[in-house]
Design a protein around this nucleic acid. Structure first.
Lengths: 252, 252
DNA sequence: CGACCTTTTGAAACGATTCAATACTGGTGG
DNA sequence: CCACCAGTATTGAATCGTTTCAAAAGGTCG
């Protein structure tokens, strides 16, 4: 974990931090960007982000890449609770404020600003726009977690996979990393299984069937194109554009 | 839905609203209680709480009874995402602020204060203690939803049922409705199935097996006593007291 | 008492997992 | 440049756990 120097890159992408109405000419407006920049760290894919002691009360702003938030059963079986993508905010704190309930890991190479609860509270207080976006992000996270719980509890394998693909497509689109239902998932089938509650073998079978039916096209280790959006949405049991408004922070 | 007149009852229970350090002699300190009282409504068990149009941006404070928050697949299969118990706060709003992502229903007879987002924001602003409790409650909800997602995705039926019982036991204990691991669940086996992602038939089989093994005792339609806490915690894959600190707001 | 809902239990069917063998891919070092 | 390796993907076959179907028993309420 090293201080990130290359923050220019992803800031160009469509992200909340760059979109904040922070008040143009006002030089203080640089403050949020600068405090986040100052606390930015790089993580290589696969690295665990650990929090101990007082560090727990911490807020993570993902500036680049994907984080996976997961939990494991005692026998090692893992469930990915959520992915935090570029622009997302994570506070992996439990009700007692002392333990992290979730294991946080960089799913890809990632850049993350790590703020204390206090710093974050101050940002929210002094820049209401940040508080607003933060609330929207958390409502969006809530909504997509509900959708996924529904499918973990009740959905078939095709339903789960279809939903997972559509959710990630929608989210990537909202941060400018997908157009025309084409996107790259930086995941193994094993990880997609941990996300959707299926064995990697069954993820493979299900994806293959979708390719055979020409619902999706797959190339180069997880470059996905949704060929028949209506069919996939039907399998997932959602309305694509409605899902987008529910699980994605909408421009205020 | 009628204005509730009988608010004295559950207020006696150990609840956040009564525990707030609102500043003793200060007469303004009555304000939170009075605004909540003014907006309290009664719902009979089974009633759906609906929100339309501008009502969506709404906060629910459960004063008495249980709410169930659920989602359904197009074929009618339902997943209960969470129960909101007495003292819990629910904001069933999606990221666009216009649709309710969750179906809210009174699982028992219930009394709920229904506040607008604006009223709630004002309460939080003027009584920081409310903001604190609110944050704790939402961290607790986050934590228990993660635990449940893990089990929906990866757990066996016994694991899911054991966890569900323990979670509800812990939560009921924290609001003074369970002592000695004895409590009443106001749920049918069907609902317990919707909560744990199992068919009602399999809920029955699993509970029966636990009774046979003397892990739990069941009487009178869902009066449950956990007879062998260690065994149940083992099946659920948790540490009981640790779970309590994670999924329950801790006294500040 | 009958109507209705919930619980219980058995048997059959189904879907997902596990096991196992093979192929594919990208990276490393001879 | 090729051989090799580890990790990943693919496919088939057997197994397992859960669901579904069905039938009966228990409870509650008009």
């Amino acid at each position: 974990m090293a201080i990130a120097e290359d923050l220019t890159l992803d800031f160009a992408a469509k992200q909340w931090l760059t979109q904040l109405p922070l008040g143009g000419g006002n030089h203080r407006a640089d403050f949020p960007v600068s405090i986040i920049r100052k606390n930015a760290h790089s993580f290589a894919a696969g690295t665990a982000l650990t929090f101990e002691g007082d560090d727990v009360a911490t807020v993570l702003c993902v500036l680049k890449g994907w984080l996976s938030l997961s939990k494991s059963l005692s026998d090692g079986q893992t469930q990915i609770i959520d992915f935090a993508l570029s622009g997302d905010i994570v506070s992996p704190v439990s009700a007692d404020g002392h333990t992290s309930v979730l294991q946080v890991e960089a799913a890809t190479d990632a850049v993350v600003a790590i703020l204390t609860e206090a710093e974050w509270a101050r940002l929210k207080r002094e820049w209401p726009a940040i508080a607003t976006v933060s609330a929207q992000l958390s409502a969006a996270a809530q909504a997509r977690i509900s959708e996924r719980m529904l499918r973990l509890g009740r959905g078939s394998a095709p339903n789960r996979i279809a939903y997972s693909l559509l959710e990630l497509c929608v989210r990537l689109r909202s941060i400018g990393q997908s157009t025309n239902q084409t996107f790259h998932l930086p995941l193994t089938q094993e990880q997609l299984g941990e996300f959707s509650g299926l064995s990697s073998v069954h993820v493979c079978r299900t994806l293959r069937r979708m390719v055979r039916n020409e619902v999706i096209v797959m190339e180069d280790h997880m470059d996905i194109h949704i060929n028949d959006l209506d069919a996939l949405a039907e399998i997932a049991g959602i309305d694509f554009e409605r899902l987008a408004t529910e699980i994605t922070p909408t421009a205020a």
